[in-house]
Design a protein around this nucleic acid. Structure first.
Lengths: 141, 141
DNA sequence: CTCATTTGTATCAACAAATGTTACAAAAAG
DNA sequence: CTTTTTGTAACATTTGTTGATACAAATGAG
């Protein structure tokens, strides 16, 4: 289990929370729908909390709810919150600095990386959490 | 898991080949510039060969050269060739089918995944290998 | 033809990242 | 005080990426 599915899980979790109408939802209940362990969900919620997308309470009748309306949360926010890194990675080891290509390739790739990240972010920001819920509840617009 | 840098390495390798003016280049020589093992390079070249981006020859004075001109190779071709997978992964385990969200989330995410892959591909296809070489040799246009 | 060179690929080890699991302190409600 | 629930640490498991060794097959040079 190595491919990073945190973004997918985060969208799933936030959709669940959005449908609970502001009531606290327990990590155990969410874990059941996502089909994973409650701690995995709590770890994810911890990141969403840091990004101020959700609010949690400890204690009896505690749980988690959205920090703001689903129309004010877009998928770029979620992508950023889970910090999945870049679309492609730069070289693990630095290339040879004696070779003209090795010396300059990193700058070119780094620039490209930012460019790709931007278009991904732009595209994701076109979709709000409310749009996702709409599709799940009423089919494809 | 180590972060996947095959795309970065592939661009590096193809840039090297493009600058060799059609002469065969040895995996050992390329490995030296990329700062890795020759077998890693040969594995990569094997994928680029399957994608018909390069041509290789075994034997003495063998090696690899580009299959076509750098202006006719764009970075989307390279990205496809190395098959690095998607920008984000779907759930590892299938979500609960008893939950309305769990039941329908996969379709929404899958659709989104294709949409993101398309914008990434479109953006990458704006850059030819010749553009990369231009930047490496003569700075940023 | 024979030999040196180089690719292509199998195999295995080393390592890193994501996920699963257990455990327990801290917080909050009743 | 007791119960419930989050937050987080710690560790095992799994899997993908990279590195390294080995060797058959191909091919050019002499």
């Amino acid at each position: 289990m190595a491919a990073n599915s945190q973004f997918s899980m985060a969208v799933h979790v936030l959709t669940m929370l959005a449908r609970s109408c502001g009531r606290n939802m327990k990590s155990d209940y969410i874990a059941c729908s996502v089909n994973t362990n409650a701690v995995v969900i709590r770890r994810l919620l911890s990141q969403l909390n840091k990004a101020k997308l959700v609010v949690s309470q400890t204690g009896a009748s505690g749980g988690t709810r959205l920090a703001r309306s689903p129309v004010d949360i877009n998928l770029a926010d979620v992508y950023k919150a889970v910090e999945c890194g870049e679309v492609f990675a730069l070289h693990a080891k630095s290339p040879s600095q004696d070779c003209p290509v090795g010396k300059n390739i990193a700058a070119v790739l780094c620039h490209l990386q930012r460019e790709i990240d931007k278009v991904v972010g732009d595209q994701l920001s076109q979709h709000s959490l409310a749009d996702v819920i709409e599709k799940i509840e009423h089919g494809w617009a």
